[in-house]
Amino acid sequence: MSEQTSKMKQGTGLRIPGLEALRDAPFFNVLIAIVVIYVMLTILTGETFNTVNNQITIMRAASVFLILAVGQTLVMSTGGIDISTGSMIGAVGAIIGIGLESGWMPAGLALPAAILLGAALGAFNGFNVTVLGVPPLLATLGTFVAYRGFTQYFMGVNLVTGLPDIITTIGRAYFLGVPVPVWTALVVTFLGWFVLRRTIYGRYIIAIGSNPAAARATRINVRAITASTYIIQGACAGLAALVLMGRLDSASAAMGEGLELHIIAAVVLGGTYLFGGSSTMVGTLLGVYLIGMLENGLIQTGAGFFVQKMILGLLIIGAVALQLHQKKKRPT
């Protein structure tokens, strides 16, 4: 494709500016991957993959990931990482679930309470990273274990089911033929895109990730801004927990287990630089779709859960390797 573009430019003098901009976009790789894999899966699965219904199924499953990935993109912009997302979902789900079951939590308050709870869990991560100075990977590895431990301690083997309508609506209802979780995720993504691309906050997190010393030498409150990305990630986890509870109509101590790797893979595949300073919300959206599509397609081709895990793990390594390789060629 890149050869074609340059041929057009030299050969006929024809320039397609949109195409050139697209080739330079950080999410170009993931776009190509989506096209190639989409065609492959369509061929491999016969008629079942390339249908409107199946695409909606993919998006509904991916919506929880997308909500989390938006927060992760902001965290990664600063050069941080949050691997405690799955455990935050578990903890929020446990508290809200038990609260609803035992009646002390009014159903109408579940959504704001979940978001605030998530934000509080994220604030603890932010505190550990910015005030105590614990490296993000280890700070959130700590809470990854601790929050899950809390959830299991708090809930035991209980399974809360029969949730109020308001919550199942958030997880299961349709609006204009599209599932409500998909709408929710798209709104969150738009907000994330706006904050990242259009506000000074977006500039500051990019500056912090790109050169922390330079950011510190300005009036930017580097600590507060960095901590706030973990709070936003926590709030996203709170929202995602409620969407997931609504979809499953239940909450258990295992909720959200293992999804953190999905999120990180999606964000990195989308073109956000793992070490901060360069990120793309459009890429994150595409990265989440790519992984959702792969999972869906692999199930349909008969590959099991374990094969999916292997592919996901290798995909992360591949994406990071590719990113580092391109970084060397073209510093951004």
Partner: peptide, 8 residues
């Protein structure tokens, strides 16, 4: 060295 944010 620490003057600029490369991505901006």
């Amino acid at each position: 060295d620490l003057a600029l944010a490369n991505s901006l």
